[in-house]
Design a protein around this nucleic acid. Structure first.
Length: 589
DNA sequence: CTAAACGATTTA
DNA sequence: TAAATCGTTTAG
């Protein structure tokens, strides 16, 4: 960048490891920390510079491919800032860049500036980098057009993902785990990667001279998690995956944060973590010490031989147990219960239980509803028998051939009716009869069952319940309505219709239809329909009863379990009412 | 949060 | 210009 000011004399040492009072790293010619503005990094010395300090804007940086600071360029005149080919004109007309670019400004990689390069993901030295053939086996290869893939993933072959610089998402998951399948050298590659990281980290931390590792800038790509495995290795001296390693998994690949402004934030995290870490270590240490002490104490009493913890027992323990026998264990447990339980029961009884009250109310409601349902059921049973009585009486009627019957029969209309089942046009006179039969025909072709037989005690003639060995189900239609398993009885020639005649739909007149059953189109199958009506209601009531039983059982179970032995031992009720309890300790006030 | 998808850019 | 593959966005 020609417009940049001389940064040389203002930044003599260029050590960004210099820290201010708050331990934030200092950068740039101004020796100020990362202030969340656009920064650009030198591709030679890797120092970061605030854009505004050296007059390089973010837009300009977009056009830069390689950028060197003033100091480096003076030292090595062969270094020159290189621009991206296509965007060469962009830094002349930055406004156009903005307009052309589809990337919103806030998403631009501020920190990297000139550093986004194709080679950024290749160290060029590791085995995968030098490999020049795709394996054709991995998911990335299979995605490629040349292997007949859909080209959706668009990533390099797993075996060619750089062990040093490939992104976590492609290397760790695929490269490490995936390539284990293909390549026995993977573990050494992994180590190589880790060691490299360590080298770079050291070079960053120590920086005894100004000669930086060329790859330093990629350090930003490795966050705490990348470092962790090595730290484990270093700290614990080959204790990877050991049981007491509770600080995290052996290797937890966490993707790096997106590009920018993470450097100092990460460092702060690091310090924070370190503090936590050291605290945790201290705690651990204490714990271990305690263990050691207790062990020593135990060993004083005779090494592995220990006395049973059972009440008043002086026997030795069984191996891998604290007790000499099951009995002793149970005794101790019982003692503990006796000790704790009375207090808990007392505590429980002191405070009223809202849930218990609600449960009682619910039970009352359920019982009321059950009562109502039973009444309804009794009513329906009565109706059932009543209906049977009516039908029996109706059968005794004698067929009567009089004029009004014929009159109603001969009522002629132009109305045309179509069957709801077969959609054929039918004569209105016989419509009811036709549709009933037609429906029965179709309905009988299908099954409607469940694998359970009906078991309702004291209920006659509800479900069809015919067993179908093929589907191993029991028919669940109402028995009176099941055309699949029962046929309407054949009507004899002298049989009377017998349908009770009504006034205003519901009021019975006491009369019966005296038309011959075969000829009566008005009351076709009236017995069946009336029976079905009653039975359907009976089923509904049974369902309701069943539901109520279920509810009752649930409430009762809940009430029984509440304040049971286990519950009393395991749970505790805390009154959160601020008027009656104050959860603060006195010293907190 | 990860994996998949995809636009964008670079390379051949 | 197509292929390769990157970084970012989106979906789950």
């Amino acid at each position: 960048m020609d417009s940049e000011m001389s940064d040389l004399d203002q930044a003599p040492a260029m050590k960004n490891t210099v820290v201010d009072g708050e331990n934030a790293p200092l950068y740039c010619i101004c020796r100020k920390p990362d202030i969340n503005c656009f920064m650009i990094g030198c591709d030679k010395c890797n120092e970061w510079f605030h854009g505004h300090c050296i007059n390089v804007t973010e837009k300009m940086a977009k056009a830069i491919r390689e950028w060197y600071c003033h100091q480096c360029r003076e030292r090595d005149p062969s270094l020159s800032i290189r621009y991206r080919k296509k965007n060469r004109d962009k830094d002349i007309e930055p406004e156009r860049v903005e307009k052309r670019s589809s990337t919103p400004e806030y998403k631009i990689d501020k920190r990297r500036g000139s550093k986004v390069k194709r080679s950024a993901r290749m160290c060029g030295e590791c085995e995968p980098c030098t490999r020049n053939e795709d394996c054709g086996q991995c998911d990335f290869c299979k995605d490629m057009k040349k292997f007949g893939g859909p080209n959706k993933i668009r990533q390099k072959c797993r075996l060619r993902q750089c062990v040093v610089r490939a992104r976590v998402s492609v290397f760790y998951i695929g490269g490490l785990l995936g390539s284990f399948c293909f390549d026995v050298n993977s573990f050494s590659l992994f180590l190589q990667k880790m060691l490299r990281v360590r080298d770079e980290e050291f070079s960053l931390r120590e920086r005894k001279d100004n000669i930086m590792h060329r790859d330093r800038r990629y350090l930003d790509d490795y966050d705490e998690n990348d470092m962790e495995p090595y730290e484990h290795y270093k700290d614990r001296n080959a204790s990877w995956g050991s049981d007491d390693d509770e600080d995290g998994p052996l290797y937890s690949p966490v993707p790096r944060k997106k590009a920018i402004k993470v450097k100092h934030v990460k460092r702060r995290d690091k310090k924070f973590d370190k503090k936590k870490e050291s605290r945790r270590h201290k705690q651990k240490q204490k714990h271990r010490d305690r263990l050691r002490h207790s062990e020593r104490g135990d060993s004083r009493h005779g090494g592995d031989m220990q006395q049973c913890l059972g009440p008043n027992c002086i026997e030795l323990t069984r191996p891998n147990s604290k007790y000499c026998s099951e009995d002793c264990g149970m005794k101790l447990a019982a003692n503990r219960i006796y000790e704790i339980l009375p207090q808990r029961i007392q505590q429980w009884q002191q405070s009223p239980c809202v849930a218990e009250e609600q449960g009682k109310k619910q039970l009352e409601r359920i019982r009321r509803e059950q009562q109502a349902a039973r009444m309804r059921l009794a009513e329906m049973e009565r109706r059932f028998h009543e209906l049977e009585g009516i039908i029996a009486k109706a059968k005794q009627q004698v067929v009567q051939q009089d004029e009004d019957v014929n009159e109603t029969d001969s009522e002629d209309t132009d109305l045309q009716i179509f069957c709801v089942s077969c959609s054929h046009p039918i004569n209105p006179k016989v419509a009811l009869r036709h549709m009933e039969r037609c429906y029965a025909k179709y309905e009988s072709q299908t099954s409607f069952g469940s694998i359970f037989p009906t078991r309702i005690e004291g209920a006659t003639r509800l479900f069809c319940d015919v067993y179908n060995p093929q589907s191993k189900t029991y028919c669940k239609r109402l028995q009176v309505l099941c055309p699949e398993h029962s046929r309407d009885p054949k009507v004899l020639a002298d049989e009377v219709c017998g349908c009770p005649l009504v006034r205003n739909v519901f009021e019975p007149t006491g009369d019966y239809c005296r038309v011959s059953k075969r000829k009566c189109n008005k009351h076709y199958c009236w017995e069946k329909l009336r029976r079905a009506e009653v039975d359907l209601e009976r089923v509904r009531v049974w369902y309701k009863l069943d539901e109520l039983f279920e509810q009752e059982r649930n409430v009762r179970t809940a009430m029984t379990n509440r304040a049971g032995l286990l519950a009393l031992m395991l749970h505790q009720t805390i009154q959160h009412d601020p008027l009656t309890t104050d959860l603060r300790n006195n010293k907190d006030r």
